[in-house]
Simulated scan of single mutants.
Amino acid sequence: MLPIFIRSIKFLIGGGFVFVLGLALFGTVKDLIQNPAAETAEHAMHKPPKELKLASDGFFGKFDNAQLQRGFQVYKEVCATCHSLHSVSFRELHGIGYNEAEIKKIAKDWGTKQPVFDEKGGTWGERDNLASDRLPKVYYAGTGSPPDLSLITKARHDGGAYVYSLLTGYDEKPSPEALKHFPEFAKPAEGMHFNPYFANLNIAMPPPLTGEGQVTYADGTRPTVDNMAKDVSAFLVWTAEPHAQSRKSAGFAVILFLLFATGLAYGAYLTVWKGVKH
């Protein structure tokens, strides 16, 4: 009798626990139906990234070195003032078409130099960058800490498209219908800028690309805001995965080998079992 009584108590406790959980779930669902959550500004105004097609997209995609060099120029002349690219070394620029002499000159002429410490680690000076050095960190004097851009296209959903959309989204304003519900976005807080492609809609970074001709492309490409945004986005896709093209080639070769090996194995199977009745 005692074991049966203990089992009955266990079933009663378990059933009561399930009942309480079910009751709580029912109450939560009922409350959500009767009192749906109010629409937030982020939900109402946030936009998905614009479409961006790059030469490196897809399994057979290849980097366009001319575009990557233009993107590097935009980064160097516009973005490098505030944002570091510390995971990239100067010599890796060989991957986008620069030769050894050009890389050495780029490193030497770079605005931020490499720190040099004495034996005691106290006083320090500076030296020119070498091709083997990573791009030096930016010591930003303003408020906040702008992110390093080395892996930004891997750290953000939609990668290059996100960067492109953010750079070209400053001129877009909230719709009149959205402003009826969220009038506070008619005028962003001091030091903030409305951008519908940023997570919380207001971003402290002012528009970095301010107009056509901000840089002068050596290949004659028209330096519009749209072109500069596309080029620097393509460059940041490369910095996040500079060996993507070689990995694609290796993967393609492996797939061809596996298909060939499968054909050989099937041919061997037919030869070995030829004439054998099942």
Rank of each mutant, 00 (worst) to 15 (best):
I96P: 00
A41D: 11
K47G: 01
K47R: 14
A38S: 06
K104G: 01
L52D: 02
K76Q: 15
I103V: 14
L93Q: 05
G27W: 12
C79Y: 11
G71S: 02
E42A: 11
F59Y: 09
V116G: 04
F60T: 14
C79M: 15
S84M: 08
T40F: 03
E92A: 15
E42M: 09
K108W: 12
G58Q: 06
K76H: 12
G121F: 08
G61W: 02
C79P: 00
A80Y: 10
P48V: 05
C82E: 09
L68W: 01
S84C: 07
D118Q: 00
P48L: 08
E119A: 14
S87D: 13
Q34S: 13
I96W: 07
G27E: 04
E102T: 13
Y98N: 03
I96T: 00
I33D: 03
E102G: 01
G97V: 01
V116Q: 08
V116L: 11
Y75N: 00
S87P: 00
Q114P: 00
L93I: 06
D31W: 12
K62M: 10
P49A: 12
L54Q: 09
C82H: 05
H86T: 10
P48W: 04
E39C: 03
V29S: 04
K47D: 06
K62C: 00
D109T: 15
A41E: 04
G71I: 01
K113G: 06
V29F: 13
F60H: 10
E100L: 11
D31S: 14
I33S: 06
